[in-house]
Write a protein that binds this DNA or RNA. Structure first.
Lengths: 110, 110
DNA sequence: TCCTATATATAGGAATCCTATATATAGAAA
DNA sequence: TTTCTATATATAGGATTCCTATATATAGGA
């Protein structure tokens, strides 16, 4: 059951949203998502990395290894132009889903 | 990635919401959900029935066979008191998820 | 009679996300 | 120096939810 084309995928929206802000590596994405939502959205790192690989495969993000100041190597992901283009329709779909669920909930009182 | 405890499950919320209104059989639930959301939420019947069995197993709904006026037999589901009690925390969780996703989307412009 | 709408049901599989585990480095504390 | 914690990425294995495809059966209209 779905708004045509949508299923789960809140993780996807969350990741794309924080990447819109600026390029980030995985660990930092997880932290920001948790902070910016006051802990309402938490990430399991083990879900995050496979998601990033999927997004990269689709061409929505691109990762590049970088060696940070401290010498730690980490993979920094940035939104591609394609990824950027996808973001607003995805948001729109989610918004429609939210509205639809609210309508369902509220019809009772009509 | 989740609001602690939530994943997918929009289907569950939709079904419980229409059942709050009145007892319904499966086919009719699907129609109402589609109508009340102006087609934004569509149901695949093949997803609906297994969902109803899961909900019944949890004790949130109870189904009873009835023979309609036309002689067709169908299974009419009603919300149990337990199901009713679950509905408002589920709605609250979804609301929190929605708000969290919106916060993520909007932090950019802050 | 045949088609469509109604009505329920299952098999098989795809997608998403989980827990558990493994690996490795940097910096602070002991 | 050794150990603990935070940082950082990665995979295996499994649970859940939802899909498509299919099967069955009745009622009513063309």
């Amino acid at each position: 059951m779905i708004a045509p084309g949508i299923k789960r995928g809140t993780a996807e929206l969350a990741v794309l949203s924080v990447l819109e802000d600026r390029p980030l590596h995985g660990y930092e994405m997880a932290r920001r998502i948790e902070q910016q939502t006051q802990g309402a959205l938490r990430f399991t790192l083990a879900s995050l990395y496979p998601l990033l690989y999927r997004l990269e495969k689709r061409g929505w993000v691109r990762g590049a290894w970088e060696t940070s100041g401290t010498g730690r190597s980490r993979r920094c992901y940035r939104l591609t132009p394609q990824g950027k283009k996808k973001l607003s329709p995805i948001r729109k779909e989610w918004d429609e889903l939210f509205r639809a669920l609210r309508r369902l909930t509220k019809v009772k009182h009509a």
